[in-house]
């Protein structure tokens, strides 16, 4: 579950203060997907940053996977991300030196594991890559994968810690329409299968009809829209 209640986030911009998120509230239940649309600079990414424990708002209440994020130390916020949140980045942000399998295993490996745990991690990574349609591509590095394949690795990596919350930032922006549809379908399936609360930012309105909830962000203000109405808008 993601719950944001009356959240406001500001940041300094020269001598003035910009309100990136203005008294925003939303709830994303488990197994559902909420899309946020809005123009560039409207505050979508800032809202995602709040929901993914990357930044603390000035005011309001934020609960993610049952954890109150307000007042957490940076180390505590890092632990929440590690344990409860999966992030799918806009650009796949894969590490160039790592194979697809390593991209998924890296978080567990950085923590240092026993041989048995390492084998389990790699087995799990293999299964996830197969789940996103990348069986046989485990040992390829990012430059050996297509844009769509890289995004699938990006999604699989976000699921590696079996998160209760999935934060997805414009996953189709670098893909053609067909590949974009495939990725959205995959995210929907995973959300339903795993019961994650998925918060997705997108520019592509063609996906909105498939969402459980659509919110529009404008100048930091969040307003609810019927998915079908949002398509027409």
């Amino acid at each position: 579950m993601i719950e944001l209640n009356d959240v406001t986030l500001t940041f300094p911009d020269g001598e003035r203060t910009v309100t990136a998120v203005d008294h925003a509230s939303l709830t994303v239940p488990p197994g559902s997907i909420t899309a946020i649309i809005g123009a560039s600079g409207s505050g979508k990414s800032s809202l995602l940053a709040v929901a993914s424990a990357l930044i603390q708002p000035d005011s309001g209440a934020v609960h993610v996977a049952g954890v109150d994020l307000m007042g957490l130390s940076p180390a505590e916020a890092t632990a929440v991300r590690r344990e409860h949140i999966g992030i799918v980045f806009q650009q796949s942000n894969l590490l160039p030196a790592l194979t697809a399998l390593d991209q998924l295993a890296v978080m567990n490996e950085l923590d240092g594991h026993s041989r048995a745990a390492r084998a389990e991690t790699r087995e799990r990574a293999r299964a996830l890559l197969a789940r996103v349609g990348l069986a046989g591509h485990e040992n390829k590095r990012p430059h050996q994968l297509s844009g769509g394949q890289r995004q699938r690795v990006n999604i699989a990596r976000a699921l590696m810690n079996d998160p209760r919350v999935l934060i997805v930032d414009e996953p189709t922006s670098a893909l053609d329409h067909a590949r974009g549809q495939e990725i959205i379908t995959l995210i929907l399936e995973l959300t339903r299968d795993r019961g994650t609360s998925t918060l997705l930012v997108t520019h592509d309105r063609s996906h909105l009809a498939r969402m459980d909830q659509v919110l529009v962000m404008s100048d930091g203000v969040l307003t609810a829209h019927d998915p079908h109405a949002a398509i027409a808008a």
């Binding site: 890092t78 590690r82 949140i85 992030i87 942000n93 810690n161």
Partner: peptide, 11 residues
Amino acid sequence: VLKALGARTGR
């Protein structure tokens, strides 16, 4: 990216 994914700075 690693920090966003939850990597500890110490690691």
